[in-house]
């Protein structure tokens, strides 16, 4: 095998496999109290490292967005340029103030300019972005809650009971809607969702095993 392939693929894959095996062993292994304390120390160290790395990964995500908008500007589309400039400008301003806070020892969240931007620009826009979904959900409810066949009829009945159980409207019509909703949620619904929780667990175990066996390669990004 070529030397470069070893450094490019084999070593990162082995590193992932080793960390997985070691951390699983650290969790289940018990010899005596002192050994456990040592093992816990190493476990915590690995966890702390991954927290630090995750913070840097999130920063790279922000840089990705900036690169995307720089590319849009470079394409010279007259319509898009002013908008991309606004995005870039705000992002850069935030980052500048964040670094300024870091340099002066002020906690970033309490830095006045930084917090002005997130309180007055980020919070309202981001909540508005999600809240427009209400319109799509309302028209989806109009289209999906139709008793086309027996399963759809059941969907409709359950949906209406839960909707009424969620509001005072239902309580005014019949006080029994709230307990009925609670029963639907805790009995048939919980049973219906349990396979999904089990499925998530199986998926996690399979992902772990694939990483240990070096079968999982998607995380490495582009092919070489």
């Amino acid at each position: 095998m070529e030397m470069s392939v070893i450094w490019r693929r084999t070593v990162p894959q082995l590193l992932v496999a080793i960390i997985l095996v070691v951390m699983t062993a650290l969790y289940f292994l018990y010899i005596d109290k002192t050994t456990k304390a040592t093992l816990n120390y190493w476990d915590q160290l690995l966890i702390n490292y991954s927290i630090v790395i995750a913070a840097l990964a999130a920063i790279v995500g922000g840089v990705d967005l900036a690169r995307y908008h720089v590319a849009l500007i470079m394409k010279r589309e007259r319509e898009q340029i002013p908008f991309s400039l606004i995005t870039l400008f705000l992002e850069v301003v935030c980052v500048v103030f964040a670094f300024y806070a870091l340099a002066t020892g002020v906690p970033i969240l309490t830095q006045p300019q930084f917090s002005w931007i997130y309180l007055n620009l980020q919070v309202p826009t981001s909540s508005a972005m999600y809240s427009i979904l209400v319109f799509y959900v309302a028209s989806a409810a109009y289209r999906t809650f139709r008793a086309r066949n027996p399963p759809a009829l059941l969907l409709l009945i359950v949906g209406v009971i839960v909707m009424l159980g969620n509001t005072s409207l239902g309580f005014v019509i019949w006080p029994g809607f709230t307990p009925l909703k609670d029963w639907i949620m805790t009995v048939p619904n919980a049973a219906g969702y349990r396979p999904i929780v089990i499925g998530v667990g199986l998926g996690t175990i399979i992902l772990g095993l694939r990483l240990i066996l070096r079968k999982e390669v998607t995380w490495m990004g582009r092919r070489d």
């Binding site: 922000g62 705000l90 935030c94 980052v95 969240l109």
Partner: peptide, 23 residues
């Protein structure tokens, strides 16, 4: 306009808050 303000502020905020965690 509002959408691009959201994008920029959200990205800048997430970088800032990640720096806070790193700090």
């Amino acid at each position: 306009l509002a959408q691009h303000i959201f994008l920029g502020a959200a990205a800048g905020y997430s970088i800032g808050i990640s720096l806070d965690s790193l700090n």
